[in-house]
Design a binder for these strands. Sequence first.
DNA 1: TAGATTGTTAATCGATTAACAATC
DNA 2: TAGATTGTTAATCGATTAACAATC
Lengths: 176, 176
Amino acid sequence: MLDLNPAQVRKDLAYFGEFGKRGVGYSVSRLRDHLIEILGLQTRRNVGIVGAGGRLGHALALYKGFEKRNFKVVALFDKDPHVIHQPVGDSGTIHHISELPTIVRQLSIEILILTVPAEAVREVFDYILLSGVKAVLNFAPVKLNSTEEICVHNVDLAIELESLSYHLNRPGVNLP
Amino acid sequence: MLDLNPAQVRKDLAYFGEFGKRGVGYSVSRLRDHLIEILGLQTRRNVGIVGAGGRLGHALALYKGFEKRNFKVVALFDKDPHVIHQPVGDSGTIHHISELPTIVRQLSIEILILTVPAEAVREVFDYILLSGVKAVLNFAPVKLNSTEEICVHNVDLAIELESLSYHLNRPGVNLP
DNA sequence: TAGATTGTTAATCGATTAACAATC
DNA sequence: TAGATTGTTAATCGATTAACAATC
């Protein structure tokens, strides 16, 4: 499914330890447990959404898929005074971003999802750095770089479309 | 900004042609034009959203950022009879997915964005294959593989969080 | 013992980087 | 000519794959 050959799978697993028995194979359920452990997926992670007043933030706040994968949206933030105190689903009401550092610590939030417009990113990111959070998933079309302090994953929807546009121009170069 | 060295930039450009003058450098605006040409971003691409009745589909349908990057959402689709004929922004009303193949051809849609629940993916993807569209951006948590026929990019939000979870477990391994 | 499968070492391949001739 | 910068070839590095001993 992932286009890997057996040697590569064994090599990658070897990086973390020995999980199989020579001549026998791997126990699927025990291997699964090891992978959950390696990825840190045993413990539920608390997540906050910054820009929850926007449509994307709203959609993600109400998305049921995160709970199934052991992530829980526990707090919502926005800059716009009009949406503050608005309730969204069962993640409580929207807080002003100035409260972010305090609430992140109070609720042990480990990951922040950023869904603010490009213009707001710099200001909001300062609050995020202040909060001490170590992981950010950024949907704003502004690349944020990871540092020793904080790990950022950037998801830029327009770039995804641009990448598909490139493939449309050269048929046959589809495959991975 | 991208952590590339000069040699790598020259190498990558060389793959597509010669865009600079030795001893002088690159003309920024002409290089920009060449890159736009290579990525196929001169022409506006028509986009359809499948699963526009859901919150994510709805958010993407109303997102202003795509137009700025030369993509236009021209049609919306869903399976749910309750949302059919509902208007969303200025992309018209929501059509039933059975109309997808016809409308894709009528409106010259080149890219489809998939925002349906996991259970609906298989059924919907059959209509997509039927439509002959060559590029798909899939947000459903079900990996779809590219073929000679169709190029699929998968964006799985839960996997992004899981990846961040892994980094939370090993501080210092943040950098790219 | 014969067959199978792991973990690991060695060989291969491709991508990144360094070096340099060509050019302004 | 001296200095700078490209395009390209060669060297280096790392990742993938193949081979094989260890083990059941």
